[in-house]
Design a protein around this nucleic acid. Structure first.
Lengths: 338, 338
DNA sequence: TTCTGGTTTGACACCGGTGTCCATGACGGA
DNA sequence: TCCGTCATGGACACCGGTGTCAAACCAGAA
């Protein structure tokens, strides 16, 4: 072994007086190997600080140890939380995380992603909402021999290929809690049509109202697109209703911030005149005034589980797919003050 | 070539009646090649939809086409912006982006990163603040034969290995603008000690005050740690001063949001009683009330340039390293009302 | 016609691992 | 003592590219 060069399997084999293949067996923990031989080789590996070359392994095994994170998600905190969760699982393994932001409105998106998976010979990919809802895309990835795990808010796939938050339940609970606080007219800001998360949250709202024996009123409901401006517009509509709500549930935090602005524009105080609940617990939630009561879902733990399902399916595929969210009670929602 | 298998260089060679090596020359655009041969081979490549296997290339070239993004950065938006910028440059190349969040307080951080670079045989890495300021780390990466480009807010390295925002200038301009608006008592919330960005913003503040002929007053200055809570504490201190400021410059948006809370706690109106300027233009800035006037720096363009310096140094290394930021004027800073 | 020199191409080893299959040797039973 | 069996380890080809070096080819000059 030349000085300054990384040791290879050949160096290890030569120094320990065995063949490459035997070293390979040690590395791969093959059971049909004499204990003494194993220890001898392991000693040399330790001495040389030998690390197998992943490129060579990838070539021989025809599979790269790369997990792809494919997303088109506007929520930076969520994406970063996912990255951290995946790293929690794959740190200290031979896997690495490669990321690929995409544009879901591009007509070539599926083609682009296929090219990416094929070129990098990805081991597996994780799809984030909203593109995780795209069955065609998931199938295209699988056709390439790539394991796919999808993150979502509903049953998009079987347990081995899904991690999901139980949004419906979480919203239902939040609305029921508002009702307990005495609110009778509860407004709703929906997310964009076509998003499963938006749909689930809508169902959760309906469920929560039903639990509380309240009837949803279309005059104090509006649809937004998860962006701040749409929340502002929704808030303006709801608050100018003849019989305005005393509480509003918004399908995400950003729109909730918009509702808050709308209330302030009308000179209303939050939470005294209007209680607001958001969803996601993004950084905004804690930093607006008043701090937003919101639903937090365990992104990082979910992503860690997803990564486990990708990298060691034999042990992790059957782990639960659904994760419970909880209500973070801050100052923006209080009991009804007539 | 078996059905369903990806074509290899051998398939291309056989079908076009030339040797592997000639195909390799075509792929690598070698100049010493007959035009007719080149076209013949290219036709076969197109027909087979052949894509070279990056693992095999990586093995032969002893260098992987992976760019690492190493960071320990609490600002999700910034990290995601960087990722998008890097992708702007490397999309449609053979490079891929692998990410690695780390913990800068871990005593084994440098060792962990070395292991990561070595294991994945990274082509280059990009370091984000605050760890981009760690010279020992940068050197360790370079010793591994890995190109390093650092992102920062000051001259951390030479042009070929640096992209930086000119924070000092930006803050100086912002403060000078406050002075133009008639503010005489301008408070300052500094970032954490030991952060170059914090230091640069401090110098910018001093410079701006000097330009306006104002003298900084330590009684209306405080140090925070870039977190919301520290901004809140700083705001409480500054606003309870015997002679409180009419405007406050905060070294980042999150602390500015804290200052805003502090003002509101004391029953002050923003911007009527107090003007506030932040730094970074994160999502918070646009979504708090009132929307925050802040300094925006071109993260995505900077990251794209950094990626170019990593992946094609021959053309990009000499591109400018410094990027100008600009002041985003929203509602939180207005002229001085006595 | 033969030689020369430049251009174009190919044979072969190599990068650092893994899979296949066979050789070896120890051990137990006949 | 001899043979069959099983545990163990090695030889060799292969994964799909690239580097080296020499051979083949071609045109123009002697």
């Amino acid at each position: 072994m030349a000085k300054g060069q990384k040791p290879t399997i050949n160096d290890v084999a030569r120094l320990s007086g065995v063949s490459k293949k035997t070293v390979s067996r040690v590395i791969n923990k093959s059971p049909l190997l004499n204990q003494a031989t194993r220890e001898k080789v392991e000693a040399v590996i330790a001495e040389l600080e030998y690390v197998p070359n992943p490129q060579a392994r990838a070539l021989a095994l025809r599979r790269n140890f790369l997990i792809g994170l494919i997303h088109d998600n506007p929520n930076a905190q969520m994406v970063l939380g996912v990255q951290e969760g995946i790293l929690d699982t794959i740190r200290n393994t031979e896997f690495a995380l490669v990321v690929r932001p995409v544009d879901r409105h591009s007509p070539t998106m599926v083609e682009d992603i296929r090219g990416f998976i094929e070129q990098q010979r990805l081991y597996g990919v994780m799809l984030l909402p909203p593109i995780s809802e795209n069955d065609e895309l998931a199938q295209a990835c699988r056709d390439l021999g790539c394991t796919v795990v999808r993150m979502g808010s509903a049953r998009l796939d079987d347990d081995a290929h899904l991690v999901a938050s139980n949004d419906r339940q979480a919203v239902s609970d939040a609305v029921a809690w508002l009702a307990e606080l005495g609110h009778k007219r509860i407004g709703f800001v929906a997310g964009p049509e076509g998003f499963l998360s938006a749909r689930e949250r809508e169902l959760g709202f309906a469920e929560g109202m039903a639990r509380a024996g309240l009837k949803p009123d279309a005059k104090i409901a509006a649809r937004g697109n998860y962006r701040f401006e749409s929340g502002l517009a929704a808030g303006q509509k709801l608050l100018s209703a003849k019989s305005p709500p005393s509480a509003i549930f918004s399908s995400n935090d950003e729109m909730a911030a918009g509702v808050l602005h709308a209330a302030r524009e009308r000179g209303m105080s939050v939470p005294e005149d209007l209680s607001i609940i958001g969803f996601d617990d993004t950084a905004i939630a804690a930093h607006i005034w008043p701090p937003l009561t919101t639903v937090r879902w365990p992104i990082r733990a979910m992503a860690a589980t997803a990564a486990a399902k990708l990298t060691r399916p034999e042990t992790a595929a059957s782990e639960p797919s659904f994760f419970l969210s909880d209500l973070v009670r801050r100052a923006s929602a209080i009991e009804y003050l007539p």
